[in-house]
Computed example of a mutant assay.
Amino acid sequence: MSLAHRCGHVITFGGEEEFAGPITNGGEVVSTAVQTARRTGSAGAIGRAMTVLNCLGRRAAPTSLAEISRRTGLPKSTVHRLLGTLEGQGAVRRAGAGYVLGEAIRRLSDGVETAHRDALRHLLMPHIAELYEATRLPTSLAVLDGHSVVRLVTLYPRTPGGPVPHGTGRVPADRTALGRLLLAYRPEPAALEPELVSIRRAGIAFLGREPAGGLAEMAVPVAAWPDREVAAIGLTGRSGELARTGVERLLRRTALEARLTLRRHRAVLP
């Protein structure tokens, strides 16, 4: 090995080695061990910062430094240092005695969420339309946003006196079968209420908002891949209409076909 290769470093371009000279710090040659430590240290710091951001992103309420440390497994001193850096960049902010994601992250997240929801709507609209044509019942595609459910699309008959879905757009999740189902599939099943545990086990949610014969809902999850429920499909109608033979089977079949579609197009999903 030449002296140049012992003292310098080699950069590869398309398989060709090019000698680039020694890496120095103020004229002093920096050892390979130090170079490696610096590279891995930077990568490690980024990884730890992402771990903290992911922890905050999973929780709607402010999270204390101690709780972040417990959930991430990072020392409190490390979490304190990372939070200070992230706060300075607008990535997190203080909220009472805890921390939440800052506006810088939320602006990025909003753009990603919009693109993600547009992709879901585009990919699954044919399945929603087919289910509506088969049942002639109000049919919705929805996602969870914090403690609210957002209907991305709803198809329903424009007939006087016909059943109308419980609003469109954003509504509290616990008021709809769609929302309760998506709450049941959050990534922290141990913290679920008994009712949500039952929904998760059954893979379907029912909600009757009025006495027998009144409006009711049922919803099933759509998974892009195993253990990743990203949306829900639901039907709204009179209690007797939802109880008709074959309606639940059609809903479950539509969700299965929607899952297959999403898995064929995983590149468009985060």
Rank of each mutant, 00 (worst) to 15 (best):
D118R: 15
H116V: 14
E133G: 03
H147E: 15
V112F: 01
A104L: 12
V143A: 01
A232G: 09
L235P: 03
S198N: 15
L207I: 06
L123H: 07
A191P: 02
P172E: 13
G179I: 11
V100H: 06
A177F: 01
A202W: 11
A212M: 09
R201G: 11
D118I: 08
L207A: 13
V171R: 04
M218A: 04
A173P: 04
P194Q: 14
P157L: 10
I204V: 15
P189A: 09
G179L: 12
E103M: 09
T114V: 13
L120M: 09
V222S: 03
V171I: 13
Y156W: 14
V164T: 11
I105A: 11
R106H: 11
E217Y: 00
T236N: 06
L141C: 02
P126C: 03
A223E: 10
A224R: 03
P172S: 09
L101H: 08
R186A: 15
G162T: 04
A216P: 01
A177W: 00
R158K: 06
A129H: 07
A177H: 01
L182A: 10
A134V: 04
G102D: 10
G213N: 14
A223N: 01
I128Y: 00
G213V: 13
H116I: 05
L196V: 02
A231G: 11
V230G: 05
V149G: 02
L215H: 08
M125N: 12
G213S: 14
A212C: 08
R209P: 03
P163R: 03
D110T: 08
L235E: 02
T236D: 15
G234N: 05
L235M: 04
T168H: 05
T135L: 02
V112K: 10
T154H: 13
A231P: 08
R201Y: 07
G234F: 03
E193F: 12
S198W: 04
T236E: 11
T159C: 02
E210R: 15
S109M: 06
A224E: 00
R238N: 12
V171L: 13
R209I: 09
S239W: 15
G111C: 06
L108H: 07
A129K: 12
S239C: 05
E241N: 08
L183E: 14
I204F: 11
E133V: 06
A119T: 07
P187G: 05
E133H: 14
R180W: 14
T168W: 00
L108D: 07
G237H: 04
E113F: 06
M125W: 04
A205H: 04
S148H: 09
A177Y: 01
V143E: 00
A115R: 10
L141V: 06
V220Y: 02
I199F: 06
L123N: 09
L123I: 09
I199S: 07
V100W: 07
A205C: 15
I105L: 10
T139M: 00
L124M: 06
R151I: 01
L178E: 13
P189N: 14
S140I: 01
A119W: 08
R175D: 13
G162W: 07
A115E: 10
P163L: 03
E193Q: 15
A205L: 08
A232Q: 05
R200K: 15
G162Y: 12
L124Q: 05
A231H: 07
R117A: 08
R170P: 05
R136V: 08
A129S: 15
V197I: 14
A129F: 02
T139F: 00
V171Q: 11
L124F: 00
T114H: 13
E188W: 06
R238F: 03
L183T: 05
